[in-house]
């Protein structure tokens, strides 16, 4: 199950690494050219080319594999790839051929929920914010953020729910009915920290409004959850 990592490491350290790496890079650059769609910018693939490439590696834009890909090639924004990112990303993974790439993405997708892949998931999660935020804005629209959380925080990715609490559903409910504000980078990052904490201990033993350093949204969400747990379903309509 680990072969991509081994491959990458091998690819980097083995004696003829640089040689094979260079071969990879050349092949990847060639592959990149195949999807290039804008004659004016030589080092960019945008919407059309991207769509074609995604079909070829079996990635759907609604699926988490799209985000895996975007992080791997360090897409600067939705549906865009740059030559440098593409070549560096894939050669780092040691995958020059389309079929290899498809397998790699499938594999990563099915591994994403495993604890040992948490670091990789975190990177993908963080990159998603950059990917989605419009260049001019400081924040992300709440709707967009929620859509992404649904992709990133449920199967096949990590599933943000515990026996007692459907965390993701609760979070979405809380944000849409109570919070109703755009999502800044801090909130985006802290949400992932919250996911990890709640999965570790759903009893919330780690939380204390007066002492912990969570942003206000997390404090208010947890207070909301505690109320909900206490009062059951409909009590929360008030507030």
């Amino acid at each position: 199950s680990n072969w991509n990592l081994e491959q990458a490491v091998n690819g980097f350290y083995s004696s003829n690494a640089s040689a094979s790496n260079n071969t990879h890079k050349a092949a990847l650059s060639k592959l990149f050219d195949k999807y290039r769609d804008d004659p004016k910018s030589a080092d960019t693939i945008s919407m059309d080319g991207m769509q074609k490439y995604m079909t070829d590696v079996g990635v759907s834009p609604e699926d988490v594999s799209f985000l895996i890909l975007s992080e791997l090639v360090q897409s600067p924004s939705m549906g865009e790839m740059e030559r440098n990112g593409f070549v560096t990303g894939w050669s780092g993974a040691g995958m020059a051929l389309l079929e290899q790439q498809q397998t790699f993405l499938q594999q990563t997708r099915s591994n994403l929920s495993k604890p040992q892949y948490r670091g990789q998931l975190r990177k993908i999660y963080k990159h998603t914010y950059t990917l989605l935020r419009p260049a001019s804005a400081r924040t992300l629209d709440l709707d967009v953020a929620i859509e992404m959380w649904r992709v990133l925080l449920s199967a096949p990715s990590i599933d943000w729910s515990t026996p007692s609490t459907p965390w993701l559903d609760y979070y979405v409910e809380f944000l849409t009915t109570n919070w109703k504000k755009a999502v800044n980078k801090d909130m985006w990052d802290q949400t992932f920290a919250l996911v990890e904490k709640t999965l570790e201990d759903e009893s919330l033993g780690w939380w204390n409004e007066l002492e912990s350093a969570w942003p206000a949204v997390v404090d208010e969400f947890i207070t909301w959850v505690l109320e909900k747990r206490k009062g059951g379903g409909d009590a929360m309509e008030v507030e």
């Binding site: 801090d186 909130m187 350093a213």
Partner: peptide, 20 residues
């Protein structure tokens, strides 16, 4: 109040005066 201070911290983080 503590929650008020926290909200101000959030604002300062967003304005990039502070970082976590």
């Amino acid at each position: 109040k503590v929650p008020d201070i926290k909200k101000c911290i959030d604002v300062l983080i967003e304005k990039e005066y502070l970082e976590r």
